[in-house]
Simulated assay, not measured.
Amino acid sequence: ESGAADYMNGLDFDGSLFWRADFSKPPHNSYTSYDYIKKAAEQKGYKLKQETNPLLFQTSDAKPANESYNVRVDYGTKNVTNLVEYNYDKKAESYTRSSDGVITTDRETGKPVAMQNIFIVEASHHIIDQDGRRDIDLESGGKGLLFQHGNVIETDWKQVNGRIVPVKDGKWLPFVPGKTWINIVPDLDAASISKGEGV
């Protein structure tokens, strides 16, 4: 009810229930298995089953408008470039993602990851230590941009049972069935919108 979620820190189980893979660079190369997750959950006293209310999804066959929109999100700092781009593919009716020009692909299949909803939300960030780690307010809600079917909708967002959802005029907006990628930025000015290619 509080929105808090059970979690496991891989560092607590590094070398036992989590292992390091050599095909990725540390610290992003820590992996585990379903059986080990069950073991860790038992050790921590976590439940393995829980009722979850479904998200809202569109039921109509909405189609892209004549003009579709792509978006860039600039996560960069003074010294580091980090530009994420989402481009809408009208034929596939989905978005592809690239980071600094490299397409995001599924490691197993090699195919580009395809998404139906891109949700960019503005949340206040505060630097909390000398390493630059941030505390991000995911409780208070704020402004957002929702991309679906090539369209862009200015929305608000709020946190509902631990999930970030789009709202407009007080009503929860449904997602398009499929994959959703949520981007959290300190200011919506980090997002720049451009028109996609013609029909």
Rank of each mutant, 00 (worst) to 15 (best):
V160S: 12
G15K: 05
K78A: 10
V121W: 08
S24V: 02
A92G: 03
K47M: 08
L138E: 12
V121G: 07
T105E: 02
E51R: 13
T155M: 15
E197W: 02
K44R: 15
A5H: 13
D137Y: 11
K63A: 14
K158E: 13
T104D: 06
L145I: 07
G170W: 01
K91F: 09
R97C: 11
E85V: 04
Q50S: 15
V102D: 14
R20W: 13
T109V: 06
L55S: 11
E122A: 11
F147R: 07
V199G: 13
Q116E: 12
S24Q: 06
R97L: 13
A4F: 10
E42N: 13
S99T: 12
I164A: 00
P174H: 07
A41Y: 01
L55F: 07
P174T: 15
T105L: 06
N9E: 05
G162I: 01
Q159T: 15
K195Y: 02
R20P: 05
I118H: 06
K25N: 14
F147C: 03
K44V: 01
D6G: 00
K90R: 15
H28T: 15
Y95V: 01
T59F: 05
Y86T: 04
D6N: 03
G110N: 01
G142H: 11
D187Y: 08
R72M: 08
P27A: 05
I193D: 02
P26Q: 10
I118N: 02
K38I: 13
G150C: 03
D12Y: 06
G162K: 01
D129A: 15
L145Q: 10
L146R: 04
S194I: 05
R97N: 03
T52D: 03
D100E: 12
P166A: 07
D135F: 11
I120T: 08
T52N: 13
I164L: 13
K158A: 05
V121M: 09
K39R: 13
Y88Q: 01
S99E: 14
I128C: 07
D169L: 14
Y36W: 09
G178F: 02
Y46H: 00
H149P: 04
N53F: 10
L11A: 14
R97F: 05
H28A: 09
G178P: 01
K78S: 13
W157M: 06
I37A: 00
G142Q: 10
L83D: 03
A4I: 11
E51C: 11
S30D: 14
I193K: 08
P174W: 03
I103D: 01
S30K: 11
K39L: 12
D61W: 10
K171Y: 09
G198Y: 11
G110R: 06
A190W: 01
V80E: 15
N87C: 06
P64D: 01
N79Y: 15
P27T: 06
T52Y: 14
Y86K: 02
Y34R: 11
K78T: 14
N66V: 05
Y36P: 03
S98L: 06
S94I: 00
R134I: 11
S124T: 15
I153R: 14
K143G: 11
A41W: 00
D156F: 03
D12N: 10
T77F: 07
V80D: 14
V165W: 04
Y31D: 08
D187C: 04
A123H: 05
Y7P: 01
